[in-house]
Amino acid sequence: MKPIFASLLLAFLALPQLALAQSALFQPIYEVLTHPRCLNCHTKTEFPRQGDERRRHDQLVMRGEDNHGVPTLHCSACHQDHNVADGAVPGAPHWGLAPLSMAWEELSPVELCQNLKNTSLNGNRSLDDLLHHMDEDALVLWGWEPGGDRTTPPLDHPEFISVLTAWVNAGGPCQ
């Protein structure tokens, strides 16, 4: 009995990964979305992160009720609608944290994919809306022009849009 139980348990533990094997179409998207330029503000924490080491934002910056900082230290106290101070201070329009429903930290590719498509979490965006958002939103585009010596996501923006388009055209497979 015992060995059988153990192997059943093992199979059960392995199940999520086996059953939720990620979509090859989504994998490159996942790698972009989990790059620090994206993930540092798509946090599940009450604060943003910074740097490729993803340290907690230095000034004890907080998310605040509207994801744009606390009244005593708004994101816009420092972040403009464009990079300033020779790129030392990054900036883009409506700079702020993504809502907690869009937190991507510590999600597996499949989980992130599913959350991304989930209209109750993603701001009620269809796949086409998502594509449009990723293609044109100034804050998204900032990820590829982050200023200073910041690294950029593994794909350049046109490549990212083309893999995203392929994923959308395939119906947004997560597995």
Binding site: A77, C78, D81, V84, A85, A88, V89
Partner: peptide, 27 residues
């Protein structure tokens, strides 16, 4: 510091504290 790191330049814009050293006059 010139990079919004130290807060010595803090002023209020419409009552909210901002770092004047990184606020372009055009903004």
């Amino acid at each position: 510091c010139g990079q919004a790191l130290c807060g010595a330049c803090t002023v209020h814009l419409d009552g909210h504290p901002v770092r004047a050293c990184v606020t372009p006059i055009s903004a």
